[in-house]
Design a protein around this nucleic acid. Structure first.
Ligand code: FES
Ligand code: FES
Lengths: 146, 146
DNA sequence: TTATAAAAGGACAGCAGGGTCCTTTTATGA
DNA sequence: TCATAAAAGGACCCTGCTGTCCTTTTATAA
């Protein structure tokens, strides 16, 4: 469904948010370890996120990644958009060049429903809402026990 | 969502079904042209489908592709399974190594719903049900007008 | 002011999916 | 029986996503 890099991005951002709530600014090495993603690749992804200003970073000793205080809610949609574009929310599930209500493919009616549901989820859910669940112990960031 | 090759496969099979209903057995060249897919690649895909017996073929002059009369309904699920496996119906949308009700990721509850809806669709819809819609003029196999 | 810790950035390596091409096999009808 | 039409199959190429490595920049603490 989502690209690997997008999944890493979301997990990384959730970890950063959790740490920020503890008053800490994690670095690449720590983040990569905790979200179980390759270190160098995580660095690339975090770079992309900061370049697009979904995240802030501080260089030098004592630096790390953190959320700007102004940006309180970061939707999954924004992350997906930056990491892989939003084509998957518009494309035809049957592979036609465009998705079109007037000239539908035979999957259109059914497919549209699930595509739109997924769209609603990623518009509504945010790094903060996901992090809340983990903080409350309702969900996990990684599988402790297989 | 689906791999390109899976989309080609579904479109190809729908075209074969429509032609079969007219008493004809289309060949690779014709199929590829009509579903707007690369010829050589379509050949590979049709080969895969016949090897897994989702489709029959006849070699030699006057040959082509057709459905065995015994097999009256072919679900999209079976095609997906053959073309790319069914991992996407089980995987965690958040990227965890497994999807697990007891130890859910923060997206689990919402994601499961859309994943299962899609699963239901591809279990229920068949090459025949899709072809019916096209035959009745309720849907199209390719975009005639942009 | 200097050693050090950290992110940023560029170059490149590996691999799977998508796609092509050419040869071989098989059947038909002239 | 033989030329031809068609699918089957194998070898290969290309691109984009995944991932690594090494250098450069920047900030801090000693
Ligand atoms: S036309 Fe195919 S999903 Fe809308
Ligand atoms: S655990 Fe992530 S979707 Fe089920």
């Amino acid at each position: 469904m989502l690209a690997k890099s997008t999944e890493y991005a979301i997990r990384a951002l959730v970890y950063v948010q959790l740490k920020n709530w503890e008053g800490k600014r994690p670095g690449v090495v720590e983040i990569a370890r905790e979200i179980e993603a390759p270190e160098a690749f995580s660095a690339k992804i975090l770079q992309t996120l900061t370049r697009h200003q979904l995240l802030d970073s501080a260089k030098g000793r004592g630096g790390g990644f953190f959320f700007n205080d102004e940006q309180t809610e970061l939707s999954l949609y924004k992350i997906i958009h930056v990491m892989e574009g939003d084509g998957c929310f518009h494309r035809c599930g049957f592979g036609l060049k465009s998705c079109n209500n007037e000239n539908p493919c035979p999957l259109h009616e059914q497919y549209k429903v699930v595509r739109d549901s997924f769209y609603d989820i990623v518009r509504k859910e945010t790094i903060q809402s996901l992090s809340e669940k983990i903080k409350k112990g309702e969900a996990v960031l990684k599988r402790s026990i297989t």
